[in-house]
Write a protein that binds this DNA or RNA. Structure first.
Length: 368
RNA sequence: GCUGGAAUCGUCUAGCGGCAAUGACAAGAGACUGUAAAUCUCUCGCCUUCGGGCUUCGUAGGUUCGAGUCCUACUUCCAGCA
């Protein structure tokens, strides 16, 4: 069983430590999205230096390239990527939702590689097998996102996710070996419907799993209420991961406040590559002409490598000239920004200043 | 000096009698939430009540219902010959 110590609680919010075979994660924590076993534009050293505690890779992408057996041969994801810290894998379930030309059945999903058109199949069992081969510390159950926002489709997706969860749990047990222990999170579905979310949380809570992913969340609207419903039902002593949310700082505050322990999101690094950079006053587009002569740091009081050494004018220049370093420095900053926001959330929960921190941060960031 | 060739939106470029005029780049802005994303979208002569109106293709004339496209002269540039 995955060891999770809760140090402090405040209603649904909690501060804790997830103990994985590759190290501890002090929660709440922002987990870097390393889809293809790399955080785009960043080295693992840069990730460590900016304060990241864990990374999350994607089973779908790693099946296509380089193949999960190769990662196993390399000694597992942490060794292969030289991350050497706690790792998560997403199941590939999200790709069912996001990719075209997938054939979904009760058994699983058939799809063609977007790289060379070759045929693949992913089932709850094969996803578990792939994740065991990849060797991340924490695996996500193979889930199914709804094809639309309707209650009917959400309910269908939820029931399929539950049926697949049972198969994931069985396969996960079967795959347990003498090697380093690996852990399974169930994934809660149900969209924006609180009745479905409650049903899904109850179902997932009843299973022998190590923690929970909360999936199918795409906007901040209604998220806090949904999380209150879900996290009031999920057992307190197991960690909860909010899947894919964290591009907007408000998501991190609402997530932590309502009982989520870890987050991952591609937004910060994608924004970075596209020149949209976080500041305390909201995101700015560094490519805009007004920054050409701005010789101040991107963000005052930021101790990331980018802000400590470079000016907005320089970053503007790097983006205008399409230099690789533009993406590197921007990614360092944006990733550091979200990691440190969650780190400070953690500290503020410990010293009971969360509400003040949240209000001050969000009012400045969103200019309210 | 002679003989060819060429001048189109910031730059390069398409255009061969019906055209506010092609494409690329540059420029201006926007989007992005479990990454087919170092990607995508919009604007890019002037004005607009978004119907349209006005002025444009080196300069000045001409032919034509109609000219960036054909003709003449001039200007500038390129190539070859002197």
């Amino acid at each position: 069983m995955l060891k999770f110590d809760i140090e402090k609680k405040n209603n649904l919010a909690r501060v804790g430590v997830i103990h994985t075979p590759h190290g501890d994660i002090h929660t709440p924590a922002f987990v870097g999205a390393a889809t293809r076993a790399t955080v785009k534009a960043l080295t693992m050293k840069e990730m460590r230096d900016l304060g990241s505690q864990a990374i999350l890779a994607n089973t779908y992408h790693l099946i296509l390239r380089p193949g999960v057996d190769l990662i196993k041969e390399a000694g597992g994801l942490a060794e292969f990527s030289s991350w050497h810290g706690p790792t998560f894998t997403d199941s590939g379930g999200f790709q069912i939702f996001s990719l075209p030309d997938v054939k979904i059945s009760e058994d699983g999903v058939k799809f063609k590689s977007h790289i060379d058109g070759s045929k693949f199949e992913l089932t709850p069992e094969s996803s578990m097998q792939a994740q065991w081969a990849i060797g991340a510390d924490i695996h996500m159950a193979f889930d199914h996102l709804a094809k639309s926002e309707s209650h009917e489709d959400m309910e269908i997706a939820m029931h399929r996710t539950h049926a697949w969860l049972d198969r994931c749990v069985a396969e996960h047990k079967r795959l347990k070996s003498d090697g380093p222990e690996q852990f399974l999170y169930a994934v809660v579905q149900g969209g924006t419907f609180l009745d479905l979310r409650a049903a899904s949380a109850k179902y997932c809570a009843s299973k022998e799993v190590d923690g929970f992913g909360i999936g199918g969340v795409f906007t901040a609207d209604g998220m806090a209420e949904m999380l209150q419903t879900v996290n009031s039902i999920l057992p307190e002593n197991k960690p909860r991961h909010l899947l894919g949310m964290g591009q907007e700082p408000i998501d991190l505050f609402n997530g932590a406040e309502n009982g989520c322990d870890t987050f991952d999101c591609v937004g910060p690094t994608r924004m970075a590559r596209n020149g949209s950079l976080y500041t305390y006053d909201g995101r700015i587009n560094i490519k805009n002409a007004k920054y050409a002569h701005d010789f101040t740091p991107l963000m005052e009081d930021c101790d990331c490598e980018c802000c400590k050494n470079y000016t907005r004018a320089y970053l503007h220049h790097l983006f205008r000239t399409d230099e690789i370093t533009a993406k590197v420095l921007a990614s360092i900053h944006n990733e550091h920004f979200v990691v440190s926001v969650v780190d400070i959330i953690r500290e503020s929960l410990l010293d009971d200043t969360f509400s003040e921190y949240k209000d001050a941060f969000l009012s400045r960031y969103y200019h309210k």
